[in-house]
Design a protein around this nucleic acid. Sequence first.
DNA 1: CTGCCTGCAAACTCTTTGCACGAAT
DNA 2: ATTCGTGCAAAGAGTTTGCAGGCAG
Lengths: 154, 154
Amino acid sequence: MSNDAKRDQFKSFLAKKGLRVTNQRLAIFEAAFAQKDHFTAEELLDHARRIDDSVSRATIYRTLPIMTESALLREVDIGSGEKFYRRNADNNAQMAQVVCLDCDRIFEISAPFMEWYGSTVSSKLGLTPVSQRLQVSAHCNLLRETGSCKNKTR
Amino acid sequence: MSNDAKRDQFKSFLAKKGLRVTNQRLAIFEAAFAQKDHFTAEELLDHARRIDDSVSRATIYRTLPIMTESALLREVDIGSGEKFYRRNADNNAQMAQVVCLDCDRIFEISAPFMEWYGSTVSSKLGLTPVSQRLQVSAHCNLLRETGSCKNKTR
DNA sequence: CTGCCTGCAAACTCTTTGCACGAAT
DNA sequence: ATTCGTGCAAAGAGTTTGCAGGCAG
């Protein structure tokens, strides 16, 4: 799906919820969809301000829940204090995260069995599953062997 | 394993690391092992102060990493702002958490396949797995049907 | 005695919120 | 014209840290 189609999806979600289409929300949308990988609220603020310098931190934090609720973004919490966000793929694939403890890079891996597991386990407890997260923390072999980590991005 | 044996395990871990056995650390240990379920740093502070009222919040936060590193406690992060802790079982079983979004209760479920998954996925990325977390968020059927949730504890 | 540990309080990080102004419908 | 959305700055929650004094080894 193109970014234009995504923008339309965002606009109609806003309309459907009775929310207004503001320049700030559109700037945040553009900034988010220019990112190819995970980003933080602060990074999104930087990028959005390059598009519309009136965007404030508060609006970033108020818009991120809207974008995750509309399934345009996924929230990725690796338990590091700050939350990460990422463009959602078109399919509703369940993704697991592999976090490199050396370079802090987050790899996303398809893990379709998670959904099955969530349902199985929840029903035994009298619960209805909403979501599931699987996260693997790991060390970089290259770093240990050569002393440097080519994945270092952050 | 008895709590006495656990306390010895704690003491020898401290000794091995060149750390001192203080009254505060022992009080925190006692307080933690009197808990049967998950607890927060703040709850641990309350309980530890009933044993030794000189225990401070700072020491709680300085001691929790020691107790998790020594494998006496497990850290459970459900992405709710505050971290939970729990006595570690004797076996090194991999546990998944099922979190009820209605009553905030955390259920622990054995999920041995997690370790296999972590290894498989890490090796493909040139990483060595350290740990894995699986968490299912779910809603309470009883609450939806009867309007109350018997699991409510927090 | 030496230096690790401690309590206290301030600092820190990320996120949320109250308020008055401004803009979308 | 309404009313929702916004920026600003302050507040909030949970956790960490600098410091001077205290206690374990």
